[in-house]
Computed example of a mutant assay.
Amino acid sequence: MFFSNDPLFRRIKRSTGRAIGDFNLIEEGDRIAIGISGGKDSYTLLHALEALRRKAPIRYELIPVTIDAGFPGFRSDVIKGHLQEHNLDLQVEMTDCHGIIEQKLRPGTSFCAFCARLRRGALYSLADRLNCNKLALGHHLDDFIETLLLNQFYIGRLAAMSPKLLADNGRHTVIRPMVYVEESDISSFSQRYELPVVDCSCPMAGQGDLKRQRMKELVNELAAENPHLRGSILHAMGRVEPRHLLDRTLKQF
């Protein structure tokens, strides 16, 4: 990899490797499907995991996969071309998420949330066919923090993401190895090496999740005052003290 000696990439790779060790994300003989959306996060995850795999003391396989949701204009060929430049093969799964959404989306239901569920189901099905026992996703530190705040502010519960979680189907383990990697580092890496970011071509693209965007702005505002904010919140997620909370299922009052 031509960027393997870049200090920025080494920092990303080191943080990813630390998360793998801390949460036992990758084990001997794993066959891991990596969801490649064409965005900066999934590209960065793939390159970090591939660099780590080459020097790992254990044997495991990485299988990059892309779900084509059927939106006109989606350029899976651009993703495939980038991976071929790095001697990696891409599995593309063609779906009709677009048509299903148009037919079955109920009024008032989130377009993006429905699409995400359909894509995730397609990922699980593809992982089954490829005999993968794990699915790696490109969520980073900021995603964990924003999800925590969204759940507190809008749902009324203390929950974020888990770096390692058994899927609802009971067959696959979802891993998020970039839990320690800040989005700013991923953005810098993507821009520095001009990673070919591909738009999903969704008709709702650009509208985004306004609540998540507000959480992102809030974190950036607070981080300007406290540079250690992200690390502090991440540390808090791993240091839960039930006796100082109100959950009656965790504590007898």
Rank of each mutant, 00 (worst) to 15 (best):
F153Y: 13
P64F: 00
Y124T: 03
T109C: 11
Y180D: 01
G73M: 00
R11V: 01
D209R: 11
T249Y: 02
T95M: 02
G35D: 04
R230K: 15
R239I: 04
G121N: 12
L246Y: 10
Y124P: 02
L49W: 07
A127I: 06
D77E: 14
G81L: 04
D185K: 05
L118R: 06
R11K: 14
E217Q: 14
G170H: 12
R248Y: 14
I58Q: 13
P107Q: 13
E27A: 14
E28Y: 02
E182H: 05
F3L: 06
S232Y: 14
G70Q: 05
H140P: 00
I36T: 01
N24D: 11
G81R: 15
A224I: 02
P203F: 11
S162W: 05
E241Y: 12
C115F: 15
E182A: 07
L45I: 08
I155P: 02
S184F: 13
G70T: 04
S201Q: 09
K40E: 03
L46R: 01
L83C: 07
I186C: 00
N133Y: 06
A205F: 14
E225L: 15
I175P: 01
S190I: 06
F71H: 07
Y124R: 04
F114Q: 12
D143P: 09
L8T: 02
L141F: 08
D247E: 10
S37D: 03
P203D: 10
H235N: 13
I12F: 00
K80M: 02
A167T: 01
R239F: 15
F253T: 07
M204D: 01
S232P: 01
Y43L: 11
R10V: 08
G81V: 07
E217F: 12
E217N: 11
L148I: 04
A56Y: 08
F9R: 05
I67A: 01
L141C: 15
D143A: 13
L25C: 08
G70A: 09
L105R: 13
V174M: 14
I26T: 04
D89I: 11
L118I: 07
D6E: 06
Y180F: 15
K134W: 04
G21R: 11
G156L: 08
M178E: 03
I186R: 00
A19E: 07
K40Y: 11
M178F: 00
P163H: 06
S190Y: 05
F71T: 00
N87F: 14
S42C: 09
E61W: 04
Q213R: 13
R120M: 10
L46E: 00
E241T: 08
A236M: 09
H235T: 06
L126I: 01
E225R: 15
G35E: 03
L250F: 12
K55G: 08
A205C: 06
H172F: 10
L137Q: 03
F189L: 06
I12M: 00
M215D: 07
M178S: 01
I145H: 04
G156Y: 08
V197T: 13
N151I: 05
K164N: 05
R176V: 00
